[in-house]
Design a protein around this nucleic acid. Structure first.
Lengths: 196, 196
DNA sequence: TTTTGTTGATTGACCCGTCAATAAAAAATA
DNA sequence: TATTTTTTATTGACGGGTCAATCAACAAAA
């Protein structure tokens, strides 16, 4: 019983289904039928709206990225000092929505797929650069640019590393502990400056 | 022209071929024929020696892990102080052999596959635990166990994170810079203790 | 009647794993 | 030593399965 105006709803449902499918299986090795089934439609419809599987995956990654961006901007909005900006960026990356096994598994899988797909690689590079510049937006108010650069790099690496370890379900268990580790690094890195 | 005693040679060649194939494609999505072709044999032979694809992949991961273990033990052997032990472990992870795009891509791909394969997951957990305990072997000589635990966790996360970023060919470019970032963290973390 | 939504069925490609067959070396037997 | 037999090495061909993508067809809204 076709109703008009289904396209946006179907697209959203298919993207959600893609995330949950990838999250559950832990890799991009999910079939179009599997995804479509979760969204309650036929695989033919998924192809109808997205053309090819690659494009569905790309759209999904874009969606995840957009979510992260929105969350980050929101968090940055309510931060008044440079120090708070840095903490806000860190906190967002470990927020309930972002630090879920499903989302993390998807991230990891996309990282791997990025080696094959140049459009995906470009997208991930945008994310990496944005994370860096978001961290910089706080750090440059605290330390010289050159040092801020290195601290941002180390912080970003630490965040990514904690993500991976979460995916393995080994090591750091919860978000709070992860945040504590990153904040501890930042604290001594920033405290260093006060003393001298 | 069959010669006797080929088995170990073929096994090694197939494992090498697996690493280079995975490294080049950037994912485990390599066919048995592709791997066998690189090793200069037929896909049937690969099956003959390894049974199934899973087992070849597992053997490959085991091989990479064994290499890393050997390198680490060698490095730890020539470290006399606890501080040197820590640096040795860090250095090994960024040594030329380990920090190559091919090897890194393989690591990343295996991380993803580990979500599906429990035997692979077990193997990676062994690696994570070993890295942790290797770091601890130095850190416990410098700070209380509880704090050493946290520093080891943060260091390990940073190492893993720098690996990922290397795979993306973005951010930290060379091993020296990566080592500098980790060492900087360790230095202030250790220096902190001197001052108080 | 044109547009939008939807699917079952099908096709074509790809790939894992198996098997029968071949050939040379090694071991056993005469 | 000469022969047969067994073991080891190796591959081409193929069966069976999976899956992305297509298409014709149908139904309801505009």
């Amino acid at each position: 019983m076709p109703k008009v105006g289904m396209e946006p709803l179907r697209r959203k449902a298919l993207i959600d289904a893609t995330i949950s499918a990838i999250g559950e299986r832990g890799s991009l090795d999910v079939t179009m039928s599997e995804i479509a089934g979760r969204a309650g439609v036929s695989s033919a419809l998924a192809h109808h709206y997205f053309g090819a599987k690659d494009e569905l995956l790309l759209a999904t990654m874009r969606y995840i990225l957009a979510e992260l961006t929105a969350d980050t901007l929101r968090a940055l909005g309510s931060a008044s000092t440079p120090r708070e900006r840095v903490s806000a960026v860190v906190a967002v990356n470990f927020s309930d929505i972002q630090f879920q096994p499903e989302t993390i598994a998807a991230w990891l899988a996309f990282y791997v797929e990025a080696q094959k797909s140049s459009s995906l690689r470009r997208l991930l590079r945008v994310y990496a650069r944005r994370l860096h510049s978001n961290l910089m937006s706080g750090l440059t108010g605290i330390m010289p640019r050159a040092e801020a650069d290195r601290v941002a790099e180390a912080t970003a690496a630490m965040i990514d590393g904690l993500y991976i370890r979460r995916a393995l379900k080994d090591g750091v268990p919860d978000a709070a502990t992860a945040i504590a580790l990153v904040e501890d690094y930042l604290e001594i890195k920033l405290g260093e400056r006060h003393k001298q």
